[in-house]
Design a protein around this nucleic acid. Structure first.
Lengths: 167, 167
DNA sequence: ACCAAGGTTCAAGGGGACTTCAGGTCTTGC
DNA sequence: GCAAGACCTGAAGTCCCCTTGAACCTTGGT
């Protein structure tokens, strides 16, 4: 654990180093690689070597996960970065710009939720018919959280029960 | 005015009704019940009957999930509500207050994330060692793998063109 | 040369949040 | 009084995101 300050451009990092620095377990990194979120080259002895920029990719994955995105989506975003060369400032900038809107969206959503909570449940009002929480969260939650994302399942399931609104 | 305001206190709802009005599948409701998030009594024929207030519990669950809380955590919050009687304004108020701070926390977190993204990744800086994104995303803030927040509500929105390899 | 630390693959396991299925029961409307 | 539809249970299946384990190979320091 030395020399991390040395900006040697072609300093490749082992999986253990990436793990240590990103805080992500090596097993998770291998998993990410399987999923195509990160990439490595191999040493003659078949051990993984990552570019430094991988750290940033991993950080991005973590960040995106915190926002609630699935790995498959994150992969899509990362796919827009060049594999062949280290991403430039512009590359990341472009990517981050598009994600900012997602973040903003999500933040707005949470703020709305908070306000609704204060205004509706918080006040204990019983007029749930006009409650934002309800009107928001019913259709909003297409298919509950948990694991799957949009695409999965949702066979002819009824849902959208006319939004009873009447509690 | 509305008939449904008539305080027929003992109007119990079937699981199908709860499902229709909350937009949550009956199977999910049974699951929630298994997990102790909601409760029911049974008819002589062993079918579930829920109090109206269950709708609010379910709404709360949905809302909390959107914030990224795990069911177990949500259960803890709900456990502070009385089982035996319909929660009062004060009950909900107490609960929502504690929850609000979580929401605020989470919102702040996302804002920080957004700013970091702009400031660190966005700018393409290479000083990842001091990068907030890194120092932040280390394990402790996260409650581990498992419940992921789902990003619903942006079905058509396809951020990454994907095809062009450029975002 | 040796050995421990760190890596590799592949397979299976696990937690969270549900859904689906099979087979049987209850309720309701005609 | 009967068929259709709603509901019940328990077990198994699914998705996602990893972790753990077994068995073996590579690297690096003394």
């Amino acid at each position: 654990m030395a020399q991390e300050n040395v900006p040697s451009k072609d300093h490749w990092l082992s999986i253990g180093e990436i793990a240590a620095r990103s805080g992500v377990a090596a097993s998770a990194l291998r998993f990410y690689e399987d999923q195509g979120l990160i990439h490595s080259r191999r040493t003659s002895g078949n051990q993984r070597q990552y570019q430094r920029s991988t750290l940033r990719r991993v950080a991005f994955v973590q960040a995106a996960q915190r926002v609630g995105l699935a790995l498959s989506e994150i992969k899509q975003a990362l796919d827009s970065l060049p594999d062949d060369r280290t991403p430039t400032r512009a590359d990341w900038s472009r990517l981050s710009k598009s994600w900012r809107s997602r973040l903003d969206q999500r933040i707005a959503e949470l703020e709305r939720l908070r306000d609704d909570l204060d205004g509706c449940i918080g006040c204990g009002c019983l007029s749930l018919q006009r409650c934002n929480l309800y009107n928001k969260s019913d259709r909003l939650a297409e298919r509950g959280p948990g694991a799957r994302i949009l695409n999965v399942g949702i066979p002819g399931e009824s849902t959208a029960p006319g939004v009873g609104t009447r509690l």
